[in-house]
């Protein structure tokens, strides 16, 4: 949210600003009246709040918090692009991987005994060189 606070040090400016606000108030009231009544009758914003009502247990939490840099003289109250306060807003890069095969199967594969290595080449019996063929034979 933009939290830039604009104001005037002069009293005449304050009065002018307040007057403008009063001129705009009826339109704001009209918009609010329509919106709140429409919402009360149609309830279009109602939905399953699964993120709050579904039981979920968190465990094995690991944290990494590394200082990066200073970011001074910002005009906004919040970090640019803040999205931690809206869990429905997806990050720029979102990946979900699903394990199709049970992990047990993988573990079984990893648990197999290592295959015996082939004997080193050096340990092989040296092959006897073929007798050079006679030219023209």
């Amino acid at each position: 949210m933009d939290a830039v606070i604009l104001g005037s040090s002069s009293s005449s400016g304050d009065i002018g600003f307040f007057g403008l606000v009063l001129l705009a108030v009826p339109f704001v009231v009209g918009w609010w009246t329509y919106r709140s009544l429409y919402r009360r009758y149609r309830n279009q914003d109602q939905r399953y709040r699964y993120e709050y009502t579904t039981a979920a247990v968190r465990s094995r939490l690991q944290r990494w918090d590394t200082f990066d840099r200073k970011n001074n003289r910002q005009r906004n109250r919040d970090i640019h692009g803040r999205n931690d306060d809206d869990s429905h807003e997806r990050a720029d890069h979102a990946t979900v991987r699903e394990a199709q095969a049970p992990r047990v199967a993988q573990e079984e594969r990893l648990a197999q005994e290592a295959r015996e290595a082939e004997p080193a080449r050096e340990a092989q019996e040296p092959r006897a060189a073929d007798t050079p063929r006679e030219p023209g034979a």
Binding site: A3, L6, S9, N71
Partner: peptide, 11 residues
Amino acid sequence: KTSTTYYDADV
């Protein structure tokens, strides 16, 4: 005539 609020932060 105006004033602005600024914020310093560690990232």
